[in-house]
Design a binder for these strands. Structure first.
Lengths: 370, 370
DNA sequence: GCCCATTGCTGAATCGTTTTACTAGTGATA
DNA sequence: TATCACTAGTAAAACGATTCAGCAATGGGC
């Protein structure tokens, strides 16, 4: 037995040219047609209508046999389409962003798009724009900004989730803050709360100002006063102590304590989001207060864990996943050429979800107030 | 005065050729050099050493003036580098995945890499591999799989976070499950718990089997029995009721109730992760039980909210962010050609964090048991 | 005066597609 | 019988970089 019966060792599957991957040319050679024809057929270009279906079948068969996969880079370079978008979030690990992204992703993948992500970590506006440039360099066809405030209109179609700045060419997906504020403060007022504390959002956050305005208006409407001593603004800065990205829970905890330390009585807190609400609740509990018996807390967003917290969190539900999906849908529409779709705002409805973290204002406290 | 003094209306900034973007050729023309030279200098190719620094300065100046930005697609096509990797997670909105991704992102962006994400939603193994192919088509240079079980070795460098299958060319970043199980069960045993319930992980999850094996061994070591009546396996399937992606909290709630309904007494639950632990706690509370007085609960992961839950969650800390970072670092090393780095496992240490959700086993229950 | 190394660059091929313009043949129509 | 409209393709030029082989000039060593 010589070498003759030793079968040459070869990997299974179609053999590839030395270079590596199977290219369009290999397919073309296999069916004895030009690359142009093969390309047209594979893309179902209008001109492919002239190619008899028999030939088309031959091409498809060859593609399958060779397991041909078009080179994305070459294709995109030439056709100027990348089918990818960029997503910018404050911090990917925050439940808010994560849920919005889940909605974005759902729609994008369904449509054959992919996406790049970057967290700007509530750095400064210039980092945000730097990231935008980076994504543009990567040839994304559009951008979705989540809860991030744009300074200048980007050179690309863009949609901002929870954005409030009307910029040419960008659409903002927002909830109706007036209703959210009116519902929430109405709920608290009905429970007898008069001294209400507030967490105001981070300066960089797109929702902050609009929400705050809505709260001020709703408060006035209801005859409630928004006291400076009872409001704190979340900083949104990475906590230096841990050298880790901003931890919203910790911030809520810290500022919840701040509120307590100020010594000014309050019977309720309307937090900026669920995460800071949960942090604050922890601070209150640790200080020996009961929630909701001593102090009621309302969150915002209705993140998944809100309903499972103890107490179950009363909160303003934002349909985060849906907002992400809507944003993706609008963006793809715009990329697809719907110029008409450039409306500056798309509004979705919030819903006050009353759970266990709110209760009637305590008598004792109410008395002491006078 | 004719047309001559009407200045042509032009956008400000560097004028661009009709085509649109500034290309390498424009820069080359501006400095009266060949594109080859400009390219070499910009990339600091070895051959660029021969170009006098004066010329180099001229080139850089032109680049700035024209605001030249290299075309990513063209560059990648030619150089066969894309500086991007793919990240596959079960579901981007789950805290576990979100935190790991945060770590991954941190390292990648620092290094000039970008990443694509896709959630396979614990579908089936074939969808996972389909996504892998999709990412490969997008020319990613490597893959990071998070808590996802690989069937075949992918044709790309890959790192699996929480992976346990040794495959050629893939590195798994895992925690020491034996220690985690020993510590946790030791803690519970020391508190007098004998009848311990368990949540076993989803079938598709990479950690499930190894963790379970470690639990079984540790239990035996401690003389504890793992009773089938007291163990339930999380399904990981999207809940049909809500038609939304799998909600881990809800699952924890459901299976927490299941446990109760079985009517078999237990004084502690070792959940598969923090999310299911929180869901289960909610179920116990709703059933009128107190945590930890009536039943102790231990989670796994130490997600951010764990420390802020009520009660504060006792849990096994996995350094998720760091694991993500490690995964990214290893992957980039491998992409950079470190063949040596292909060790099958990298282990990080877990840490049992004892908080408020565990307490001594209740006397009454312990008595009844006999 | 010759050879060689170094300096400073360039031309042209190449990556793998898409796309435009064109051709050659074939019936049908005017 | 010229013209026209299809049919069934092809050749070659993009797209915008990188990269390799090479070349002219200069200076130094022998």
């Amino acid at each position: 037995m010589g070498d003759s019966d030793v079968k040459p060792v070869r990997k299974r599957g179609p053999r590839r040219s030395e270079g590596g991957a199977v290219t369009l040319r290999h397919v073309a050679e296999r069916v004895a047609l030009s690359p142009a024809t093969v390309s047209m057929v594979l893309n179902q270009a209008p001109a492919a209508a002239a190619i008899p279906s028999e030939t088309q079948e031959r091409i498809f068969a060859a593609v399958r046999e060779l397991n041909y996969r078009p080179n994305y880079l070459a294709r995109s370079l030439r056709s100027r389409r990348t089918y990818s978008v960029g997503v910018l979030v404050p911090e990917i690990s925050e439940p808010y962003a994560a849920e919005v992204m889940s909605g974005i992703e759902g729609h994008l993948l369904e449509t054959g798009y992919h996406y790049l992500v970057a967290s700007h970590r509530r750095s400064n506006a210039s980092l945000l724009h730097e990231y935008i440039d980076l994504m543009r360099d990567r040839a994304v066809e559009g951008l979705i900004l989540v809860a991030s405030e744009l300074r200048q209109p980007p050179a690309l179609p863009a949609v901002v989730v929870s954005g409030h700045v009307p910029l040419p060419g960008v659409t903002n997906v927002v909830i109706d803050h007036d209703r959210a504020a009116a519902d929430t403060l109405g709920h608290l007022a009905a429970l007898g709360h008069r001294r209400i504390a507030f967490f105001k959002g981070q300066p960089g956050s797109a929702d902050t100002d609009d929400r705050w305005r809505a709260i001020a208006e709703a408060a006035q409407e209801l005859g409630l006063v928004v006291r400076p001593e009872l409001t704190v603004q979340l900083s949104g800065e990475p906590s230096l102590a841990t050298f880790s990205p901003a931890d919203g829970y910790e911030e809520g905890y810290t500022f919840g304590r701040t509120l307590l330390e100020r010594g000014v009585e309050f019977t309720a807190l309307f937090a900026f989001d669920d995460v800071s609400a949960i942090g604050a609740i922890r601070a209150f509990l640790d200080a020996g207060l009961r929630v909701p018996e001593d102090v009621s807390v309302v969150g915002f967003d209705d993140i998944q864990s809100a309903a499972y917290h103890n107490p179950r969190l009363t909160t303003v539900r934002q349909p985060l996943r849906r907002m992400g999906e809507i944003a993706a849908r609008i963006l793809l529409g715009r990329i697809g050429g719907e110029q008409a779709g450039a409306q500056p705002f798309v509004t979705v409805a919030p819903e006050l979800v009353v759970r266990g973290s709110t209760a009637p204002a305590p008598r004792r406290r109410a008395k002491r107030e006078r």
